[in-house]
Design a protein around this nucleic acid. Sequence first.
DNA 1: TTCCTCTCCGCAAAGCTTTGCAAGTAGAAA
DNA 2: TTTCTACTTGCAAAGCTTTGCGGAGAGGAA
Lengths: 337, 337
Amino acid sequence: MAKRHLSLKDLATELNISISTVSRALRNHPDISPEITKKVQDLALAKNYTPNPLAMGLLKQETRMIGVIVPDLVTHFYSSIISGIEEFAKSRGYFILLASSYESIEREIESVSNLLKARVDGMIVCLSKETDRFEHFVRLIENEIPLVFFDRICLDDQVPCVAIDNKDAVEKIIHHFHEGGYQRIAFISGPAHLNISHDRVAGYLSGLKKYGLVFDPVLLRPCNMLIDEAIQITDEWLALPEPPDAIFGINDMVIFAVMQELRTRGIKIPEEIGVIGFADEFHASFSTPQLTSTMHPTREIGIKAAELFFKKMDDPSFSGTVVLQTKLAIRESSVRK
Amino acid sequence: MAKRHLSLKDLATELNISISTVSRALRNHPDISPEITKKVQDLALAKNYTPNPLAMGLLKQETRMIGVIVPDLVTHFYSSIISGIEEFAKSRGYFILLASSYESIEREIESVSNLLKARVDGMIVCLSKETDRFEHFVRLIENEIPLVFFDRICLDDQVPCVAIDNKDAVEKIIHHFHEGGYQRIAFISGPAHLNISHDRVAGYLSGLKKYGLVFDPVLLRPCNMLIDEAIQITDEWLALPEPPDAIFGINDMVIFAVMQELRTRGIKIPEEIGVIGFADEFHASFSTPQLTSTMHPTREIGIKAAELFFKKMDDPSFSGTVVLQTKLAIRESSVRK
DNA sequence: TTCCTCTCCGCAAAGCTTTGCAAGTAGAAA
DNA sequence: TTTCTACTTGCAAAGCTTTGCGGAGAGGAA
């Protein structure tokens, strides 16, 4: 199809000198005379020569590509993080090879394998919601392939991770609800094996305790992050003799589903039930009522993850988790008039 | 850093045969005896050998990577299309190299250049909103590098394109408003040089005519797709002696800004002003009131774009625009009770 | 004049794969 | 026994770049 790209050989032929001289001239090697150097560089510029990354990669044993695996591409949370990673990577001359696990561990494993086949220099990953075993990542570690996790993390004793302060984030939510006079705070959590779930549950328990609220096991429900499930749970709570007066959930999906269900049933937010989500600016601001939510520093997460990635490249023994703080953006859905 | 990947040489050394024999054995070449073939394949499987794409690329003059340039990564519209492209590409054994133009023509040009340096086999692109000159793409065409545009397109006499039926989409909107008794329909369009703008304007004009509505130039405003601008335009319309009774806009951003402004001013949707957007399911369904909107077949756009890409690879002379139909999802924001 | 020392440039290998061609062995035919 | 065919396998080049090392030429010193 495409015409062949220009190579050193082409330049060398045109100038009637050897390939190695051209190569050296382009890198300003002192062995090469100023005249030839100039002639070569001028021609390269005029003809728009760029070195062939395949050849370089073969030689240097690197592709300058980072594999990025996310649960999905369309959720704002992930696309924003990807955007951050991409920006930082680009500044270092690296490209991103994107793969989606579609929240499935099988496809996650497949993605790891595909990226490996593509010879990426390393990977930045957010676990799928199903991921409760990690052999596919252990294999990477054993082969000393740089790896970084973000948000949903594991193996953090060996792998650099970027996470938010999940416990603190939930305590902030409890605090805010408590201040507004809400008493029975319900939490739709995620799959138990995910760090974001149990860290947030920890925050839920410690938060309740801290503010002298009673823990009712009925009001803590794990879920698989599906809309129908969230609606189902909401229904069950509303059927309780003592239903909750506040609900928060583990992500956008879940909490918007709750809001819609409450609205369908004519339950007023925030008067009857206060609602808080983990959502992004755009969604939260344009919903009605505007949604109080924990704001993730998404772009920062991406940039930090990329930063750790390069650190890991330089120092294979590097690990440790960077914890970023969240901010509770208080809007209408949790503030009674 | 990472340990070297396994190569044919490693297998050859281990089996005490030549590299070429290993290569042939893996591809079931008839010249190789069944015993050796089996031995090689077993070892390759056991050791998890995968061919080095850099070497293959160098040899075959292809990278099996497609460069994808979008205005941004975080808008659902684009991420969903990317997801579609990725899926189709993966099924063909291709990877995607992602780049964002951030709606800037300079960064778009830079991205084209970066992807070229990375030696992608071709590109799939959605123009930035600023893009009103196309030399950077003409250069690709001249070098016979496969190129496909989607949504915001140009050079469609030489480049395969995927677009939606913009004119028809807007006519549907006008039709629906008209049926609901709305008379003064206002349209916040986009930059004049984009096809999506002028095609939709064409639909606006033909739609008004078709349904016997008067065209008032004041109610057709181009904008640069910024929130503040949309709010500003809304304000100006509301200050008119005869304000519009229906508004639709060129994308999510714009129309949510309008809704928020109307809400701030206590103007009832859809009773006083009907509103329709070009938005995605998720946003539209969870807003209040639920937003009537033109649904893009985003995933299909992505898949189709990828399909055309491969067609273009096979046949360099191929071009032509595939037009996909939209559907107007009627929800609350445009239906008076 | 002869030898030494710079200066400047080219050869060749390595990194990995595919593939045309040459070469080897074994068996069969003469 | 000799020669030819058929069957297997290996050599080497190409695709592109970097770099150690060897070499050629020029100039100066002895």
